[in-house]
Nucleic acid binder design. Structure first.
Lengths: 230, 230
DNA sequence: TAATAGTGATGATCTATGTCATTCAAAAAC
DNA sequence: GTTTTTGAATGACATAGATCATCACTATTA
């Protein structure tokens, strides 16, 4: 909601679309309790299990959202980029975070008290409606991830992840990523070693080009076939 | 919302809690377009991919909800029992069903046009709020399932499923189930053969007693340990 | 400059789990 | 009463993918 140029929600061009449904006075209420915070790479924005006080909207950088399992195992369930707000289901049930959010690179976010947002959801039905849409889309994405993780095998999952990175997250090809191989593994539900191995076979087959942080997809069509066939 | 005794929403004692937030006239609106339908075992209530016209509330029986993957593979993501309504995320995005609902046994359900429900969500904020809570809880459950499927191995997943069946779905021990071994496998993310094998080891170890449709948990504590340790 | 740590890469195992084939029992159909 | 069908059970086998160990390369710190 805030960026370097605009220090308030009303004029902010970085703000999430859902705020367009708010009127001037509602925006003022949000702005009054808004805090903009800068995070360094690797810093935790909020942690799974902790109480959720704030509604988070990412205004710059890239934030990864992951589930923490037993023994350091992680599953990345999504990312938040400018200008995404992070839907926290715990805000409506047990007031706890159910996943962890970490800055993948230098990032800024605006924090707003959840109470304010929940009040707005009650008084502004258009706002509530766009919120419901967002929540629903996230649920649908989770369905896809569950299906993919349990029914596809590694090459299919990796192909899916690479396409997602290029098309949705970075929207460029080639793309420079701040994600480690471990992160890519966490996105595709496998160990780091397996991720590296699969990427190597893709490289050997001329499907991609991967050199450190730079990844380029050479054969989109074939990758999509692999992704579809599991 | 309707049962044998009460043929309208206003007097219905079977109706879902969320309808308690509606006033008389709102309930009348729901009742006016309500249709109560009886399903036989195995019948599809709605199918993944099809357009979603109706909001479904289960009034008797048991309904399984599953994702359909490639090649007949299924993942059961939950059940609806009296009196649960089924949250359909597609209703708020692409107007398509993203999972399939099938009656596990003789079941009845009330169908209400989604438009009516969406109108109510806009005009009655208390109704919307209880709806949001429900949606959030479902998302959290999906997180747990994703973690379990990718990080636990078969005995852990099976233990989890058996405890869930006894405590949440049937709320009795022993319990008689209308679910097949395939269904139990679909709940725990494994093949039917593996499910049968794991259940056999549980039987041999004296943790459960399984005889056809009847399942009894003998050692809850140990099952929970297995479930936790993956 | 050396030392330490973090990440990427790769090979050698090991095992959890899927696949396939078969048997058996019970129920349903004829 | 026999035949057919359906679901449960079990064994043999194959393999995807985890685990473990090692090594190379940077980047940071002493």
């Amino acid at each position: 909601m805030a960026n370097i140029l605009q220090a308030n929600c009303m004029m902010c061009r970085m703000r999430s679309d859902i705020f367009n449904t708010l009127n001037e006075s509602e925006l003022h209420r949000v702005d009054d309790c808004r805090v903009s915070i800068k995070y360094h790479q690797g810093e935790i924005i909020f942690k799974q299990g902790s109480p959720c006080h704030d509604f988070v909207c990412v205004t710059s950088g890239l934030v990864k959202l992951y589930l923490e399992g037993e023994g350091d195992r992680r599953i990345i369930i999504g990312f938040a980029r400018p200008v995404d707000y992070i839907f926290v289901p715990g805000a409506f049930s047990d007031k706890r975070h159910h996943f962890t959010a970490v800055a993948c690179e230098e990032s800024t976010a605006c924090l707003v008290e959840v109470d304010i947002i929940q009040d707005l959801l009650k008084t502004n039905q258009e706002f509530a409606s766009s919120f419901m849409t967002k929540v629903s889309e996230q649920a649908i994405q989770l369905f896809d991830q569950l299906t993919s993780f349990t029914q596809k095998q590694m090459p299919g999952r990796m192909a899916e992840v690479l396409i997602c990175l290029s098309q949705k997250i970075y929207q460029s090809n080639p793309f420079i990523t701040s994600l480690s191989r471990q992160d890519i593994a966490d996105m595709s539900g496998m160990t780091k070693e397996s991720a590296i191995r699969i990427m190597k076979t893709f490289k050997d087959d001329g499907l991609i080009l991967a050199e450190g942080n730079s990844i380029e997809i050479l054969d989109f069509a074939k990758l999509e076939t692999i992704s579809r066939n599991g």
